[in-house]
Amino acid sequence: MSWEKWQNIDRRIIYLLVTLVLIIPIFKPMGLPITVQKDLTGLFYDRFDKIPAGSIVYFDAAYSPAQDAEITPMVKALFKQCMKNGVKIVVGGQFETGVPFINIALTQVAAETKAKYGEDYVEIGYKPGGVATVRVMINDFWEGAKSTDFYGDSFNTLPLMQKVKKFDEKAFAAIVIFESGSPGMETWYTYTPKIPLYKASVMVEVSGSLPYLKSGQLKGVLPGMRGAAEYEKLIKAPGAATKLMDAQSAAHLLVILLLVVGNVGYLMSTRRGKA
């Protein structure tokens, strides 16, 4: 047997295998158990759930369309939790492409939860200018956001916005950033350090966030699709992430199998070379 072949499987065969192990569980879910990570998702839920009714939370859409599959389940789960607890939401975005995607997600979930636009939540949309704009919003939210929401309507017509004059800890009980890259959480822990910051992040970003969680600069980290599935379990509202976790698990088993195959091939070919 040629052990070298084990190390050099055609990448197209691997793509085909990955496609199969991802698609089959979507049709035939295995119902694998989802355990909640206490130090990440559990911690996020416990702290976020304590935000009192009537408080206002700021959602920041700092993600691009490619990350929609990971982020949208988290957006929906957190929105449902806020509406259930009577927490109001102001939605902005540091990524211009994240704003329409969070709008689609919120429009769907607002219909389910019967949330009223303008009273329970407001979308202010993307505001260009980076930290310069944020700085203006800290002193005068309306001025920085140009008093205009995502739909082009004036803040004067939106009751919730009458309670938001400055971007400070008096107006906002928390900031939740849905992040897939930069600019991201550094905007908030740098310029609004007094407002508790929560991060719902793509998996790639999680390891870099943990020192911030340890130091207390982040109050919670929600790790990717797995975190979304765990959160759906905690709020008792299974959604898209729960549905896709079987496929995730199957794909990871395949990766482990391929790692073993490649390494066995390497070890055997090395041993034969020595002999």
Partner: peptide
């Protein structure tokens, strides 16, 4: 890897 699988699943 987990993140990339999530994108593909999406």
């Amino acid at each position: 890897v987990q993140g990339r699988f999530s994108l593909l699943l999406g």
